Amino acid sequence: MAAGGDHGSPDSYRSPLASRYASPEMCFVFSDRYKFRTWRQLWLWLAEAEQTLGLPITDEQIQEMKSNLENIDFKMAAEEEKRLRHDVMAHVHTFGHCCPKAAGIIHLGATSCYVGDNTDLIILRNALDLLLPKLARVISRLADFAKERASLPTLGFTHFQPAQLTTVGKRCCLWIQDLCMDLQNLKRVRDDLRFRGVKGTTGTQASFLQLFEGDDHKVEQLDKMVTEKAGFKRAFIITGQTYTRKVDIEVLSVLASLGASVHKICTDIRLLANLKEMEEPFEKQQIGSSAMPYKRNPMRSERCCSLARHLMTLVMDPLQTASVQWFERTLDDSANRRICLAEAFLTADTILNTLQNISEGLVVYPKVIERRIRQELPFMATENIIMAMVKAGGSRQDCHEKIRVLSQQAASVVKQEGGDNDLIERIQVDAYFSPIHSQLDHLLDPSSFTGRASQQVQRFLEEEVYPLLKPYESVMKVKAELCL
């Protein structure tokens, strides 16, 4: 049975990233139509530049190519590739079939990587351009969430054990800070992308030097003109047959890092959902379990974690691919890159769409948070109580021993009897502590235990987050809708 299948058929496997999760716009960027249309555009740009620099290419040939950029006979191309065992030459023939007058000058002087690699770089750039505003929107939604809850005390956790208090907004800023680093890295790697350009079979530009009869300047002009037509500021000066596969490492490393950030955020949300302090959106008709109707599973956060793990592992592909590119190139890269580049971007696209949807509907339960604080705060307040007693004339050592005994009794009630923490009640009825009984409410005010959390939130948002989001103001209103 021949390899390949009808990918629109229910009898043929289709990647869930495309069929179930990723956005239509990201799927289109990695589609065959987008790819092969870009090949034709690159052939047109090459012909236009070659004509401008004096090669015998007519206006009629150029116009014929322009008129057929979208006229792609995919069936013919597939048949040609089956016959020739070469995808680029299959599309040269297919393009030439609908451009008979231009057929002889299509791909003039070029090698397969002229269309293959340059198209990949265009796709990487455009895919990054799709991700950047999506990530900015996630940051914006979380920034709104953090600002609104900047002063809401909550129990902090280290080692997932109760620690000092923080605020809900401050905790959210930990998430935002990681995503801001990801946004900066995505922008950097996007701006650092260079075009492969017009380089020939081993990167020496020998074929173009021959076409222009040894004119170095025209060869350099050709490279520059096509690079500018493709919208790049610069091209690699040095290439082998391909652009260095280190570029793929750079791009997928940034995406993998984004995956790590999203995994951490969504894990926190899942843990908070278990504590009943916070939940992701839950639709009115949504079913959490087929057997347990009360369940409210954090399905979206779980999906993000599941896909983020996949995204983090994909960076190993370009690392290994770059390491086995012998001399000017081997074909070890080809099949692998067809999979890992598309999957990385479709996965990143999915987790950003999902995280935006989550961040637009996060639900906080202040009463649950308050109750958990009441359970733990008495123990945390013991040092403040000791200091207040010393100020009232008591002995630190005597007070410490009193607190120690009462704390152990209260802990026994919590752990052995399943009761509430009654340390404060014990202190309130103990005559030894009568000098500070009137101060206990103040000493137990949760806001006095959150330090500068709310001020940190305000400063972080104003100095770091809002300036970073400013270039994306025009796209901030787009909502994230999930079908599944």
Rank of each mutant, 00 (worst) to 15 (best):
D182M: 00
Q408D: 11
C305K: 02
L130A: 09
R337I: 03
C173K: 00
Q184Y: 10
P56S: 11
L130M: 10
D178S: 07
G54M: 09
F379Y: 03
Y114D: 06
E302T: 05
I176D: 05
K415W: 03
R188D: 07
D120W: 07
T227D: 02
K82R: 12
E228T: 14
T111A: 00
D117G: 05
I265L: 15
T347M: 09
K367H: 09
D216F: 08
E279L: 05
E79A: 09
S434F: 11
I386N: 08
F460Q: 02
R329D: 01
E70D: 15
G419V: 07
G451W: 04
R190S: 11
A388Q: 06
Q177I: 14
H107V: 00
I123G: 09
D398L: 15
R83D: 14
D87C: 00
P378F: 03
Y21F: 15
Q409H: 10
I238S: 06
F379L: 06
F195M: 15
L443K: 03
A2D: 10
F379V: 03
I105P: 04
N68W: 08
Q458A: 13
P298D: 02
L468G: 09
K284E: 09
N384H: 15
A102W: 00
F74H: 10
A348M: 13
G418P: 03
H442R: 11
L252M: 14
A273C: 15
R396G: 03
L222C: 10
I176Q: 05
L142E: 06
R270P: 06
W175R: 01
R194L: 08
L46N: 08
K470N: 14
L484E: 14
S257P: 05
T94D: 07
R20A: 00
H400M: 05
Q221L: 13
D182F: 01
C304R: 01
I339V: 14
G5W: 12
E25P: 07
I237G: 08
R171T: 01
A49I: 05
K477R: 15
S301A: 08
E425A: 13
R329C: 02
R337C: 00
A392T: 11
R404L: 10
R303N: 04
T347G: 12
L406V: 10
A335R: 02
P162E: 05
C173Y: 01
F157G: 04
R190A: 10
R149E: 12
G418L: 04
N421H: 07
D182Y: 04
R296F: 08
V414H: 03
S31D: 10
A431E: 15
A291C: 04
Y13H: 08
Q285E: 09
S31I: 00
A431S: 13
E473L: 15
Y21R: 00
G231P: 04
K134I: 08
R37A: 12
D182V: 02
F160D: 04
L155R: 01
H159A: 00
Q458C: 13
K75N: 11
T204F: 00
A273W: 04
Q210N: 14
R309H: 14
A348R: 02
E360G: 10
V457L: 06
Q184W: 10
D87S: 03
D192Y: 10
E425K: 11
E148Y: 07
S23R: 10
D398Q: 14
S447D: 13
V324F: 08
V138D: 10
D441P: 11
K415S: 06
S23I: 07
V226G: 01
A47W: 02
L443M: 10
E464S: 07
T347K: 04
Q51F: 07
C304E: 06
V405Q: 09
T313L: 10
L152G: 03
D216C: 09
A381W: 04
G116L: 07
V247H: 12
I265Y: 15
S412A: 11
R426T: 06
D120V: 08
Q177N: 15
V429K: 09
